[in-house]
Design a protein around this nucleic acid. Structure first.
Lengths: 335, 335
DNA sequence: GTGAAAGCGCTAACAG
DNA sequence: CTGTTAGCGCTTTCAC
């Protein structure tokens, strides 16, 4: 293993000079710099991460905690994780992936062992058990998701309230007066990130403002569950013509069931989904949808964290504006 | 930040004693051990990862490289990654997540900087550009996937050849004589892991043995592509009654299209999929399938790596036996 | 069964 | 602009 000292000797300079060439923290004459850089190449030198971390108290690692609840739609999580990793690398950071189980203990472990310079927490619950630790943390932390009380925290999330409102508004403008929201699994509403509740409250308040009716039903996803949910919806509100779906596992079942029942999309009923673009475009009917901007969320979060690491930027909740893309699943309400 | 020295002072022992209590590398009297452990708790001590890495040349980190080709089915990758992370933690290791871009350079970076003790490479191509580096690596490496030449490498993968054979055998036993394989996107066959080719060769050789015909068609996935592919299949082989699908994005389109064409599953045609169980059970018809054992692959890979790190175990290709689960999409061939 | 002390490879004052 | 030097916190001989 090549060490800095060896590079120094090879280049005929002192260790510190090599170090400074690497960090750029003081000016070096062109000739020395060149000599050192040549030696680095010749010897194939790479700074030792452990030594560097010890001496500088900087690891250049960001920990990414993603608890993996079974009812979360994994691909979105993954897309965010990938975006985070990519963005982090662009800023010179690597990602340490922490999953499930460990929970709050992981926060303590990372903090205590100085394994990472900062942390990003995904899939944040309304009253997340990691939050107390986060608030007392010495290192920067950012959340992807919005807890019940985001005071003093840095959070990035899609503005789900606006998303719900946007969907209602869009459908109402098309003349739909009876809407149904097909939501996440019931469990999600009880203990989760609150994104589901926020969507719902956006839906309800805009529905009230616009004078349309909106019925909400959680749904486990899959065919049997969707069939039951759909039956109950039409039972209760036979005039329903607009659907807002926030549940990837319910999308395809819904479309198939509507078809089976002879309700044409978008002629008889319109469907607007809140889901990743990939799901929207791969569905059996190309879905009008509000995308979950996973890439953007990952990128922004890393930017916030890096800003904090560099001493810039203070806690801030950053909600991304929803964008609705019209595709083939929506149209004017039938007369 | 609490240091080992502080713990030592608090417990009234020397630093080395604390270190040995932690590592268990020499016997400690019960009383001392207790005292030290109390101090550790009282002070909330966590060993500094950097210092430990520097002194011991062990990071307790395993790097996981997953290139992210856009045509790979992400959820499977993710499931493996999660399984890897979980298994690694159980062995006392954390996972450093490396994605895309960097390619071979990442291997060099990890090796050179001693950021991790070992590496796991996912989504291995037939002639992966990372392999030369891997062969010369000082640290243990394991591959998830099977390259063209696995000599001297540690690999874990599903036995796709056996998988292809198994699917054919199953359908042939049900009396199907004309089979069609709906494969991955064309691009996958050109440059990828070879899992697609291996499946195909398994299909072909068993088909020959059993005297059944098997037509193969790559498919981009999605409705339009699947519609075209399906039309061409029935055009060329109108008597096709058995489908083997190895493409998650083609599953639902296939089922819907068959339905639209009035071909009942499983009465008229049988469908066997090679996909994660979740896809098989969530499809509009519960699919008879061979599962991609993501969990198992992750677990096994970590076991191999840990074995290597502990000096046990040498290079070895480990192919997991496919298991076919019968569900609702397959039945006897129509008469 | 326990201590003392020498590094591990790097960074960052402190001196010129 | 460059060199000298003192650690960073831990592991691990060596010595008792």
């Amino acid at each position: 293993m090549v060490t800095l000292a060896e590079v120094a000797k090879h280049a005929g300079v002192s260790a510190s000079t090599v170090s400074y060439v690497l960090s750029g923290k003081r000016s070096i004459s062109a000739s020395t710099r060149e000599r050192v850089e040549r030696s680095i190449d010749d010897l194939g030198y790479h700074p030792n991460a452990g030594a560097r971390a010890l001496a500088s108290s900087k690891t250049n690692i960001i920990a990414l905690m993603m608890p993996l609840r079974t009812d979360m739609y994994v691909p979105v999580m993954m897309e965010i994780a990938i975006a985070v990793a990519t963005a982090a690398r662009a800023h010179g950071y690597d990602i340490l992936l922490l999953t499930g189980e460990e929970g709050p203990a992981a926060v303590r472990r990372i903090e205590g062992s100085a394994l990472a310079d900062a942390m990003i927490l995904m899939d944040v619950e309304l009253d997340d058990e990691r939050l107390p630790l986060v608030r007392g943390a010495e290192r920067p932390v950012a959340l992807i998701g919005l807890p019940g009380d985001p005071t003093d925290l840095t959070c990035v999330d899609l503005d789900f309230t606006a998303t719900g409102a946007l969907c209602v508004e869009y459908l109402a403008n098309l003349g739909h007066r009876e809407l149904a929201v097909i939501g996440e699994a019931p469990g999600v509403y009880e203990r989760h990130t609150g994104f589901a509740e926020r969507t719902l409250s956006g839906v309800r308040s805009r529905a009230r403002e616009l004078g349309v009716r909106a019925l909400h039903r959680p749904c486990l996803g899959g065919y049997p569950a969707m069939a039951g949910t759909l039956a109950r919806i039409f039972d209760e509100r036979p005039g329903t013509t607009g659907f807002i779906v926030q549940n990837e596992a319910a999308v395809e079942p819904l479309l198939n069931l509507l078809r089976q029942q002879g309700r044409a999309v978008p002629e008889d009923v319109s469907v607007v989904a809140i889901c990743p673009d990939q799901v929207a475009t791969q569905a059996s009917v190309r879905l009008t949808s509000v995308a979950i901007p996973a890439q953007e969320m990952g990128r922004r979060t890393v930017e916030r964290i890096v800003a904090k690491l560099e001493g810039r930027g203070r806690p801030e909740v950053q909600l991304l504006e929803p964008e609705l893309t019209v595709r083939a699943s929506s149209g004017p309400a039938p007369i």
